[in-house]
Design a protein around this nucleic acid. Structure first.
Ligand SMILES: NC(=O)c1ccc[n+]([C@@H]2O[C@H](COP(=O)([O-])OP(=O)(O)OC[C@H]3O[C@@H](n4cnc5c(N)ncnc54)[C@H](O)[C@@H]3O)[C@@H](O)[C@H]2O)c1
Ligand SMILES: NC(=O)c1ccc[n+]([C@@H]2O[C@H](COP(=O)([O-])OP(=O)(O)OC[C@H]3O[C@@H](n4cnc5c(N)ncnc54)[C@H](O)[C@@H]3O)[C@@H](O)[C@H]2O)c1
Lengths: 209, 209
DNA sequence: TGCAGTCTGTGAAGTTTGTCACGAATTAGG
DNA sequence: CCTAATTCGTGACAAACTTCACAGACTGCA
């Protein structure tokens, strides 16, 4: 079954979920597509259309029940279960990721961390002990994590990606400034702050917008 | 002049530039749209069309001169000049950003860092001394930075964004998990690793793809 | 020089994505 | 109960984006 739901829609779902979480925190029960659109810099029609790919979650004349819609979205994104994540590259950024409290509440648990630097191996960061890259395959076999976060320098990115893919990982969050090549069936998302800034400066140039 | 170049195209330019940089590093002189397409998980036609929005940079029968195209792209994105950046929020992530060596080579210079935590103010991180948030407006007036990186907790994001916008900043790179509201003419790009993972898990669910 | 092979730039065609607008469900208030 | 005001879900339409396909430019070789 090759889904015909546009990928752009899938990319918006986490945003919807995040805003709904905010509304829930502020104790709001019900939200209209109009209101959501305002909060998301989107349009009511866009939001209703996106949601309609997955079912009918709202009520005419009223809107969407915040907690209900949030639960549905989490279900759709596969977040009703816990996901195990490994981290490769425990440098500055890797350490920030390991101590970051934002993953666990969403069901993402970093279960192991790897680095090729022998002086880091064996040290503790957060609640984990850094392991040698060589142990990766074995550890993956044990824990069966589904996701990997790659935070190594650009030149090491491809070999690390190859390694985690060989170990059976199917989803990769890549912080390195390198466009990794992966086989069919493996999903990669890149985090690229420099690129993000560069796409802003285009518009800030005197004759930009 | 309201440009009619699609924003998706602008978002791809940094990617093109990054891959070209890689090719230049490996000493490659010329590259075809075919080859670029392979490296970028894109198509030759897409790349030629994208570039054609800005001019004619290639040569039939040969391809694009790597260094020439890279220079042109940097020119287009407004990277022929230096950009000054301020950072707000010097926590775990903020510190990683301050010591990160990836911004400067692309022309982005972090010129000041701010935090509301008095115990951080006055301490040194990298080559900067952390300043109190209250000094932000004054410092912006002096240095005239064009960009801000926001790395504060989600609940503080909107007020920080309001503050930097009031100070005259027109481009914001936001790491906080919050969809900030900004006035017309201000550009925001969000970095959202959790959202990126969530959009992967959609496809990894048993019935995902 | 001529010819086969390569590769760009670009209109036109095709596909995907976003917006519109309206029927139907729901609510609130007389 | 009836009416006015909301707001969803959705097919039809429009806009945006991607792919196609080919003329024309360039290379290398005999
Ligand atoms: N620091 C930031 O704010 C930041 C922001 C965005 C992107 N990045 C990117 O994230 C990556 C990491 O950045 P950083 O600042 O943490 O760099 P860093 O040099 O501090 O850390 C990199 C770590 O990766 C390890 N490593 C290198 N090769 C490896 C391999 N083959 N296997 C396992 N581990 C290996 C190194 O030993 C080191 O500990 C870089 O690609 C950088 O461009 C960093
Ligand atoms: N650490 C990560 O790997 C990571 C990854 C992605 C996103 N984030 C996000 O980045 C942000 C920062 O993360 P962190 O791990 O560095 O958190 P942190 O708590 O270590 O740092 C936050 C800093 O912001 C400061 N701050 C709070 N309110 C402020 C205000 N009004 N003005 C100025 N400074 C203020 C705090 O004093 C603190 O120093 C968070 O929103 C987090 O969700 C972090």
């Amino acid at each position: 079954m090759t889904s015909n739901i546009p990928e752009v829609v899938i990319l918006r779902l986490p945003l919807y979920a995040r805003v709904l979480r905010g509304l829930a925190d502020r104790g709001e029960d019900v939200v209209s597509s109009q209101r959501l659109g305002d909060l998301l810099h989107s349009t009511p029609a866009q939001i209703r259309k996106d949601l309609s790919y997955f079912g009918r979650f709202g009520k005419q004349g009223r809107g969407y029940r915040v907690d209900h819609l949030l639960r549905e979205l989490r279900q759709i994104m596969g977040l009703e279960r816990q996901w195990s994540v490994i981290l490769v590259g425990v440098g500055q950024l890797g350490k920030a990721i390991l101590t970051y409290g934002g993953f666990a509440p969403q069901g993402f648990h970093v279960v192991a961390a790897f680095d090729s630097d022998q002086s880091l191996v064996g040290t503790s960061v957060g609640s984990l002990t850094v392991q040698a890259s060589g142990e990766l395959a074995e550890t993956v076999k044990q824990h069966q994590p589904q996701l990997a976060i790659v935070a190594v320098p650009g030149h090491a990115c491809q070999s690390v990606v190859d390694m985690v893919v060989r170990a059976g990982i199917k989803g990769i969050l890549n912080y390195a400034p390198h466009q990794a090549q992966v086989p069919e069936g493996v999903w990669v998302r890149d985090i690229d702050p420099v690129g993000a800034l560069q796409s802003i400066t285009y518009y800030l140039k005197p004759n930009g917008s």
